[in-house]
């Protein structure tokens, strides 16, 4: 007799159904999941399980008991952190990336410069090494970090732009601009857009403007540095 252990289906994933229910899917993904759910018995079953879990926890561990239990655990001495590291290799890698990335300067001219001489630098952690990503923007998998070098404007917003979707990586003083992130998902290319200004920048409106109109949408008087991000092998 053959027993199938399952695994992800072509469009089915129990975790994606969970993320859908939790409101963690963005625009296109959410719409795709909604449409898929309507016709997929397997994902509908996953949805029913999630609802059953909800009823179960309310019955077995009502909030008051839960809160008391968590408070008790928090009052207990913290377990050694060594095991904890295994949960967050990405955070640890990011810290390492920061530590090394600053010490190692990228090649001059790696980023596109503004008239005032501001440039961006992109680093990637590959195994134990941190490398400067070239102007072609080809990156493999692993944590990335975008930084500004010699900024001549006071404020900066760093964005990741994929088609008509943009996301804020960093917003604030350009001197401190540093954005560790990981580029995941199906897209094969994206653009890293840096907007610089001496006026305060509203990150959300800059993001929306760039998502809708590209780099032409940035506020008047600001400067832009765009560099490609291409998925490839490193």
């Amino acid at each position: 007799m053959i027993a199938d252990l399952g695994g992800p289906g072509p469009a089915c994933s129990a975790l994606r159904v969970r993320r859908f229910v939790a409101g963690e899917l963005s625009g296109v993904e959410r719409e795709r999941m909604q449409a898929h759910l309507e016709g997929c018995a397997r994902c509908q079953e996953a949805l029913r399980e999630i609802e059953a879990e909800k009823a179960r926890v309310l019955r077995d561990v009502p909030f008051e008991r839960f809160a008391a239990g968590v408070a008790e655990k928090l009052a207990a001495p913290v377990a050694p952190r060594r095991a904890w590291r295994k949960f967050v290799p990405i955070a640890a890698a990011a810290a390492l990336l920061i530590g090394i990335g600053i010490g190692r300067s990228g090649r001059e001219g790696d980023g596109v410069r503004t008239k005032g001489g501001t440039s961006t630098r992109l680093y990637q952690k590959v195994g134990a090494e941190v490398i400067a990503v070239g102007p072609d923007g080809v990156v493999g998998t692993g944590p990335l970090q975008l930084e500004l070098a010699s900024p001549d404007r006071a404020q900066a917003v760093l964005l990741l732009v994929e088609g008509n979707d943009a996301s804020v990586l960093y917003a604030g003083p350009s001197q401190a601009a540093r954005a560790p992130f990981e580029w995941v998902g199906p897209a094969s290319s994206a653009t890293l857009v840096t907007v610089l200004s001496d006026q305060p920048l509203d990150a959300e409106s800059v993001r929306r403007a760039v998502a809708e109109h590209g780099t032409a949408g940035v506020p008047e008087g600001s400067e832009v540095i765009a560099r490609p991000l291409v998925r490839g092998k490193r």
Partner: peptide, 28 residues
């Protein structure tokens, strides 16, 4: 801030093996 599905922001500045700050459970 909006989130692109294809982005994961990595928290930086912590080595991951330092003891965390004292935490109390905020009810809300």
């Amino acid at each position: 801030m909006a989130t692109v599905s294809a982005l994961r922001v990595l928290p930086g500045g912590r080595s991951g093996n330092e003891p965390g700050p004292a935490v109390s459970a905020d009810r809300g």
